[in-house]
Amino acid sequence: MKDKEFVTWESIRVKGKLRFFFVNGLLLYGLPMCIITAYSNKLFENGFTLKAVLGHVTIWSMAGLMFGVVMWYITERRYKKEVTFRENSKQ
């Protein structure tokens, strides 16, 4: 992990998991994917129905949350390895 990534992750983790899940999962992944797939799959070609919207939004919201959770734990694991490495290299 590079120094810039390390410092950035330290500031992100202070803000908490839930904020990360919401911002990085829902807003930065789930929402764009929801919009992109709605247009690329022509989801509303046969009309703009509430059922289609709710189904699509629900799926991509859950996918966004899953993405956020997975990314949190992957990055947290990398961060902890780096902390251990830096502590051992100081000795």
Rank of each mutant, 00 (worst) to 15 (best):
F22R: 01
Y73H: 11
K15V: 09
G55D: 08
G64P: 07
F85D: 05
K42I: 11
M33S: 09
T84V: 14
V57A: 15
P32A: 04
I35Y: 07
Y29V: 11
N41I: 02
T84N: 10
E10N: 11
D3H: 06
T37A: 06
E5I: 12
P32V: 10
R78Q: 13
G25Y: 05
L28W: 07
K42H: 13
N24P: 03
R13T: 09
I12M: 07
P32E: 05
D3T: 15
V7T: 13
F22L: 14
M62R: 00
E82F: 05
L31N: 02
L65G: 08
V57H: 01
V70M: 10
S89Y: 10
S40M: 12
K2A: 07
M71Y: 10
K90Y: 09
T37D: 15
M71R: 10
I36P: 00
F85N: 08
T58R: 01
Y73K: 04
G47F: 06
S11E: 15
I59Q: 04
K42M: 13
G16V: 10
G30F: 05
K80W: 01
V83Y: 02
G68R: 02
Q91M: 09
S11N: 12
I74S: 01
G64C: 07
L54V: 15
M33W: 09
F20K: 01
M62A: 14
K15N: 07
A38D: 01
N41W: 04
Y29R: 00
N41C: 08
C34K: 00
G47V: 09
W9C: 07
K15G: 03
R13D: 04
K2G: 10
V53L: 15
F67G: 03
E5C: 06
T58M: 14
G16P: 09
P32W: 05
I36K: 00
E45Q: 10
T49D: 07
I36Y: 07
I12N: 01
I35E: 03
Y79K: 01
L26I: 15
M66E: 02
R19I: 14
L54H: 02
C34D: 11
S40H: 02
S61C: 14
G25A: 05
M1P: 13
L50Q: 10
R19E: 12
M33K: 00
L18I: 14
S61M: 12
K90H: 07
R13F: 02
E87L: 13
V57M: 08
F67N: 05
Y73S: 05
Y73I: 08
F67L: 03
V83N: 01
K90L: 14
E82M: 09
G55S: 08
F20Q: 02
C34H: 04
I74Y: 05
V70A: 12
L50A: 12
R78N: 13
V23F: 12
A63T: 10
S40N: 09
L28G: 04
T84R: 10
F22C: 06
M62P: 00
L27W: 06
T58N: 03
S40F: 12
E5P: 04
C34R: 00
G55Y: 08
F48M: 07
N46R: 06
F48E: 02
I35C: 11
N46G: 12
G55H: 06
L31W: 03
F22E: 01
Y73E: 13
K17W: 00
M71C: 13
T75P: 00
R78A: 15
F44N: 06
L43F: 06
K4T: 15
N41P: 00
G25R: 02
S11L: 13
F85A: 13
V7H: 04
K2V: 05
L27S: 06
